[in-house]
């Protein structure tokens, strides 16, 4: 799709890459760093390290990071005559929305990749953990990326509507707080309809924190599949909504 390829060209030299690299490394640094400073060993090896890095990261930094990426991806469209040019081309609102979403999805996946790589490096180099990060956390990482998609799609829509860089990020922060609240209250039905809750829940899979039962079982895998399905449905709704607004809205 032409709009996707065009969006990837726009990512060159983008500030987005700084968020992609720095935010997960900060999470690894703060999660792993606290443990190192306390001088206590990692009680359960890789599992404890993953828990300390990822759970806090999933409470709000990840959602805020995705929101910041969405603001950055849309920022250039709000500059100069770019919005006029974007909408005066023979390209549909859906193509524009999908192009932006695809760029955000790629950035989000790259961010998770940095988080995993950072965790592995910290586990080996700082704690000298044996082996490597268990494969189940790679699957959880895929689930986290999938759970980020509806947040990315929703934040993309917000950043399309708002010229301000900070306003959609603030909405992302509030959304993250609300999402965590729903997860903590175990309001599962409502949480399944709130993108930020899905993201937060996905980062807890296998950790035993909040609503999570701990080690991944067959039942847990079914829950994860349900979470991924809900994420994909919400993503489709958010992308379609963004496209519809782009088609209908006048360019101010």
């Amino acid at each position: 799709m032409g709009s996707v390829r065009a969006e990837f060209i726009k990512l060159r030299r983008s500030l987005s890459w700084a968020v992609v690299v720095l935010l997960p490394l900060a999470a690894v640094g703060s999660g792993g760093g606290n443990t190192a400073l306390s001088g206590e060993p990692l009680a359960d090896g890789w599992h404890t390290l993953w828990l300390r890095v990822v759970v806090f990261y999933g409470l709000f930094p990840l959602a805020v990071g995705v929101a910041a990426l969405a603001s950055l991806v849309w920022r250039a469209e709000h500059e100069g005559g770019n919005r006029n040019a974007l909408m005066a081309r023979p390209v549909s609102g859906l193509e524009v929305a999908v192009g932006k979403f695809a760029a955000l999805a790629a950035l989000t996946a790259a961010m998770q990749g940095v988080l995993v790589a950072g965790t592995v490096v910290a586990g080996k180099a700082v704690y000298g953990l044996p082996g490597s990060l268990p494969a189940e956390y790679l699957l959880v990482s895929v689930l986290i990326v999938v759970a980020c998609l509806p947040v990315a799609a929703l934040q993309s829509g917000l950043s399309m509507l708002m010229r301000s860089f900070g306003a959609p990020v603030a909405v992302g922060l509030l959304g993250a707080g609300f999402g965590v609240l729903l997860v903590a209250l175990r309001a599962d039905a409502l949480a399944a309809a709130v993108p930020y809750s899905l993201l937060s829940r996905a980062t807890q899979v296998g950790t035993g924190v909040f609503a999570d039962p701990g080690p991944i079982t067959a039942e847990g895998a079914a829950d994860a599949a349900g979470l991924a399905a809900a994420a994909l449905v919400l993503t489709a709704v958010a992308v379609a909504g963004t496209a519809a607004v782009l088609e209908r809205r006048d360019v101010a």
Binding site: R5, A6, A76, E79, G80, N84, R89
Partner: peptide, 30 residues
């Protein structure tokens, strides 16, 4: 719009990209 080119208000273009990259972007898009 496939037969209409336009430049409305201020000139478009992505400032962090080169001229060639901006042209390639339009090329890919269309």
């Amino acid at each position: 719009l496939g037969s209409i080119g336009s430049l409305i208000e201020t000139p478009p273009a992505y400032a962090h990209l080169t001229g060639a990259e901006n042209m390639r972007l339009v090329q890919r898009l269309l």
